[in-house]
């Protein structure tokens, strides 16, 4: 029988220090959704195949279902809830809307986090590079074309010199 233990965990989540109580059996996905109430982190498969639960952990893109909550003590975590600012949506969010890059929207948080990580690493990807980077994120509605367009449109905006 699995043993259950309560853990007190403190992490920096979307720029704020958060302390939460988790079950020792919780994945990071479960902890973020059910203990911290960040419902933008989505569960599609719970075994690392769909990317709907993607978050950026200590600067690296991970599937949060494949990380244990117990591992994130002291970590820095970025989720979709942290992308927008009081000034407005991030360029990727805005471009996803304008390019019609989402339909049902369940995969969108994962695609946004994955694309955020891509553009940090490679601000000027080719279409093929975008397609390969996003191969860990499943979308069943769009056929991906409009997602690729949105990522490229955001990349262009983000490369433009600030006014």
């Amino acid at each position: 029988m699995a043993t259950s233990e309560k853990l007190v965990i403190t992490s920096n989540i979307n720029g704020e220090e958060r302390t939460f109580l988790a079950d020792s059996r919780d994945s990071l996905l479960e902890a973020l959704r059910e203990r911290v109430n960040l419902k933008g982190v989505k569960e599609g498969c719970n075994n690392g195949n769909c990317g709907a639960c993607a978050v950026i952990l200590n600067g690296r893109l991970v599937n949060s279902c494949c990380v244990m909550a117990a591992e994130v003590e002291g970590a820095t975590i970025e989720t979709v809830e942290g992308l927008a600012t009081p000034e407005g949506l991030a360029p990727l969010q805005q471009c996803f809307l304008e390019e019609a890059a989402l339909q049902c929207g369940i995969c969108t948080p994962g695609f946004l986090m994955s694309s955020t990580a891509l553009l940090r690493e490679n601000p000027a990807p080719t279409d093929d590079e975008v397609r390969f980077w996003l191969a860990g994120n499943l979308c069943r509605c769009t056929g991906y074309d409009k997602i690729i367009l949105a990522v490229q449109a955001a990349a262009e905006q983000m490369r433009a010199p600030k006014k």
Partner: peptide
């Protein structure tokens, strides 16, 4: 025309409430 969907902002910010998000 091609306006932005009414449910769009909630879906790109993670605020859209799906079935599994009910508490």
């Amino acid at each position: 025309t091609r306006p932005v969907r009414p449910d769009g902002v909630d879906k790109v910010t993670g605020r859209a409430a799906y079935g599994a998000d009910v508490v």
